[in-house]
Amino acid sequence: MKHSDPRYPPLGFGLGLRVQHYEDLLSVDHGVEWLEVLSENFMVDGGRPLQYLERFRERLPLVMHGVSLSIGSCDPLDMRYLRQLRTLAQRVEPAWISDHLCWTGVDGTNLHDLMPLPYTAEALKHVVERTLRVQDFLGRRILLENVSSYVTYAASALTEWEFLAEVARQADCLILLDVNNVHVSARNHGFDAQEYLSGVPANRVQQIHLAGHEEGEALIIDTHDAPIVDPVWDLYGSALRRFGGISTMIERDDHVPPLEDLLAELDRARAIAGAQLSVAA
């Protein structure tokens, strides 16, 4: 499975597929080059969701993004979930499959949240072993995404980016870098976002997420429900300087605006990429 560049071919600039945009994305000349679908939304037996999925699949490259892999949980891997994921992948034929570097529950309970891991040797070994098993089962490299976090565990011995880099290297997997999440966690924990980017192995970054967040009193909260703020755009520029032309998408999970608003954000991403990559060239 090892190659000099382990990544899939890039797809350009995309959006997270949301119900509110189904018709516009099918009818409007929007310039969106690919779509990311939420895997769990389509783990259903039938009906309109799967009919729409088929129509989008005929038009654009799709990638699958999940929230239930729970790669860091101490529970056994959920084979029922993995079988459903594999079945969906056979139907969608996605360019790639991603989930999060986190855990979502233990002892059979699911918190439906992306809980942060302690950055320890034990957790690293655990995540690497499970990622290898998942990749064997799915027959492909997966992407793991950095999550926003609000706590640091006393047990952590590595930085988040050191942990992420080691998981990618040892499990031979790829990285979905959520630039907003880097910004949120950097602010919440007081680390340097640029240092984070410097610690991420460039040849492992397959995809970038851009999103907005909410300013709280003491912490900023990753809501993915607001426009992207300037510091995140700046960090995106830095990421492109370091990683090159990476498939980028806008991920809006709530307060979903009209498609035009997201297309405008996507145009801004294109402009930043154009400027950064022309400088690099």
């Binding site: 809980m115 706590v151 640091t152 952590s156 924990h189 007081g190 912490l219």
Partner: peptide, 19 residues
Amino acid sequence: LAIVADSQGATARDRLHVY
């Protein structure tokens, strides 16, 4: 509380209450 490190900006309690 015992497993979360103290850090500047917000108390461990406030941080846990986000989750």
